[in-house]
């Protein structure tokens, strides 16, 4: 494995759900890569497939869903078709996930100590004393005061923000190469959110951990990520460096999303709104999925747009990208 290879490279990933009513293409031809110490923001509204993308990487997609195509290269190894045994050695060890609701990660009837030591012991041959020491250090690292005492506490004895820190501490335990964070701050207050973002950023810088930060909130990504992928109806519609995409979005959906953020607009004046709502993924009509809400849509959009590169460092899935010269 070359040292320049990205930590994770996803190519043409397809995860489909085979339901009685039809095939739901939750993730359709998604490609991106994350380097060491890089934070990738994966942005989209509910139902856009961002969480399923995260689950696919970890091999956590349950029936009737299945990864039906594409490559997931982790440190050069294709794990899209890896067996369960291999995934178990990676999951929680080299790749960790943080969920929106920390109670999804934490077992309510076990002490934090028990859960954290279990994570260490499952992957490393160390004695219990060392495992406890690691757990203690991880809690301290995410800014939990008096970690020695807090180790013996149960999850319900922590506040929401502290619980999320515990979940992050568990993700850190085995010093993973990649962390997938699925809306980890959505349920938290701004001051607590800032504390969590601070820890995430520090981690990335100091340990070189690659991170995928899944969120619906462009503003969170703006301060945190290095690059961003915008998802719509299971596909990436725009990808690029964070400043570039936020300052000069070219896809009509990205433009609409940015335009509808309240703080960008003059007070009291109606916000720009994207008409209609996100389409149901079941039996999505052919062509561009955004067609029916798009101000630029025309006959060409009846065909499905491929990912094109209008200029260096940007990918967009649109026949009518908004380019400065042509505006």
């Amino acid at each position: 494995m070359g040292s320049n290879a990205p930590t994770l490279r996803v190519e043409d990933l397809k995860t489909h759900f085979f339901t009685k009513a039809g095939v739901v293409k939750a993730v359709d031809n998604v490609s991106f890569s994350v380097d060491r110490a890089q934070i990738l923001g994966l942005v989209g509204e509910s139902g856009s497939g961002k969480t399923v993308t995260g689950f696919s990487i970890l091999g956590l997609v349950d029936a009737p869903g299945r990864v039906v195509g594409g490559r997931i290269e982790f440190n050069g190894e294709d794990i899209a078709n890896a067996d369960e045994g291999r995934m178990q050695t990676l999951r929680g060890n080299r790749i960790a996930m943080i969920f929106q609701d920390p109670m999804m990660t934490l077992n309510p009837v076990l002490r934090v100590e028990t859960q954290m030591m279990e994570t260490v012991l499952a992957h490393q041959k160390v004695d219990r004393k060392t495992a406890r020491q690691r757990a203690r250090d991880a809690l301290g690292q995410v800014g939990i005061p008096s970690p020695d005492e807090r180790l013996a506490a149960y999850p319900h004895q922590f506040s929401g923000g502290m619980r999320q820190r515990v979940a992050i501490a568990i993700a850190l335990l085995n010093d993973p190469d990649l962390i997938i964070a699925d809306e980890p701050t959505t349920a938290l207050d701004v001051t607590i959110q800032a504390q969590i973002l601070f820890e995430a950023q520090k981690l990335c810088r100091e340990r070189g951990t690659a991170m995928i930060w899944i969120t619906h909130d462009l503003a969170v990504i703006a301060g945190l990520a290095d690059k961003v992928c915008v998802m719509y109806a299971g596909r990436i519609v725009e990808a690029g460096a964070i400043d570039e995409v936020l300052d000069h979005p070219v896809h009509p959906y990205t433009r609409g999303l940015i335009g509808s953020v309240p703080s960008r607009n003059r007070r009291g004046v109606p916000l720009y709104q994207i008409p209609g709502m996100t389409p149901a993924l079941l039996n999505l009509p052919p062509g561009c999925a955004f067609r029916e809400r798009c101000p630029q849509a025309d006959g060409a959009c009846m065909a499905e747009p491929g990912l094109s590169v209008p200029f260096d460092g940007r990918a967009v899935r649109c026949f009518h990208p908004h380019l400065e010269a042509g505006a």
Binding site: V190, T191, Q193, A194, Q195, L197, F198, Q201, D217, L218, A219, V220, A222, G223, L224, D226, I242, D243, L246, I258, V261, S263, R264
Partner: peptide, 12 residues
């Protein structure tokens, strides 16, 4: 968090 603040140093 705002769209205008990029690569911010969070000082919570």
């Amino acid at each position: 968090p705002r769209l205008e603040t990029r690569h911010s140093k969070f000082l919570p």
